[in-house]
């Protein structure tokens, strides 16, 4: 089912299937996500939200169908080009995925180091993004010493540090209290306001209602419909 179509799609999925043995995680997903969009991906547990996000950054390959990200066809991308695809994304996880033995500063700078940026630029950029997320004074702290909300702010800082085109956020507020969750969503909205595209997987309906944007509804691996966030009453 082709749910929508946009002339300037940044992400395009054509009849994408993902199977794990006999189990169908995603079934015939066709979807266009334009530039500078804020999309939620929602649905109950096991609907395929995380799988959909993983297919986009090539955490796994689709079993069938085509995916285009910023002009790159993921079914044809050679293994050595995968890092360059991943640099188009900033990824935020529910469990933060910060390196516990590295300081906040080092965690964020890793993205820029991996992209081969120069030392001075890294210093400047990391300070800047940590200031944006309000974590500048915790730059030398180790992640385990931070609260969940603070760790997720660091994760957002890491996600935006490399100036990605797209942020993929997989249940980024799932383990946070309401206030911390609001901060994270504000940060993601800020990224969107500056021209970025956000794809946020969540089953938190109140979050969707408050934030706006568009909502991709998944159910048992099928794309049911795409609606504006305000109309979501399910």
């Amino acid at each position: 089912m082709t749910a929508n179509s946009a002339p300037e799609a940044l992400i395009r999925l054509f009849h994408v299937h993902k199977r794990y043995g006999p189990k169908h995680a995603l079934v015939d997903i066709s979807l266009d996500i334009p530039k500078n969009a804020f999309y939620f991906v929602t649905g109950p547990s096991g609907a395929g939200k995380t799988t959909l996000l993983r297919l986009l950054y090539l955490g796994e390959r689709a079993s069938e169908g085509q995916i285009l990200v910023d002009g790159m066809n993921l079914s044809r991308i050679p293994a050595k080009r995968i890092p360059f695809l991943r640099r188009k994304f900033g990824i935020v996880f529910q469990d933060y995925k910060l390196i516990p033995t590295k300081t906040v500063f080092e965690n964020v700078s890793l993205v820029l180091e991996a992209a081969g940026k120069k030392f001075r630029l890294i210093q400047k950029k990391v300070r800047s993004v940590l200031r944006t997320v309000g974590m500048e004074d915790k730059a030398e702290a180790l992640p385990p010493s931070l609260s969940g909300g603070e760790q997720q702010r660091v994760a957002v800082a890491r996600a935006v540090a490399g100036d990605p085109k797209i942020i993929l956020a997989d249940e980024p507020t799932g383990s946070l209290d309401e206030d911390s969750a609001a901060v994270i969503v504000d940060l993601l909205k800020g990224f969107h306001t500056r021209g970025g595209t956000v794809l946020l997987a969540t089953h938190d309906r109140s979050l969707i209602k408050k934030t706006g944007g568009r909502v991709v509804h998944l159910h048992q691996g099928h794309l049911k419909e795409i609606t504006p966030a305000g109309l979501d009453d399910r």
């Binding site: 640099r87 995925k97 390196i99 991996a114």
Partner: peptide, 16 residues
């Protein structure tokens, strides 16, 4: 292990 996974996630090449 975790660090290697994160590095891959943020686009580090195998060489890096």
């Amino acid at each position: 292990r975790q660090e290697v996974e994160v590095m891959r996630l943020v686009g580090a090449t195998d060489g890096f």
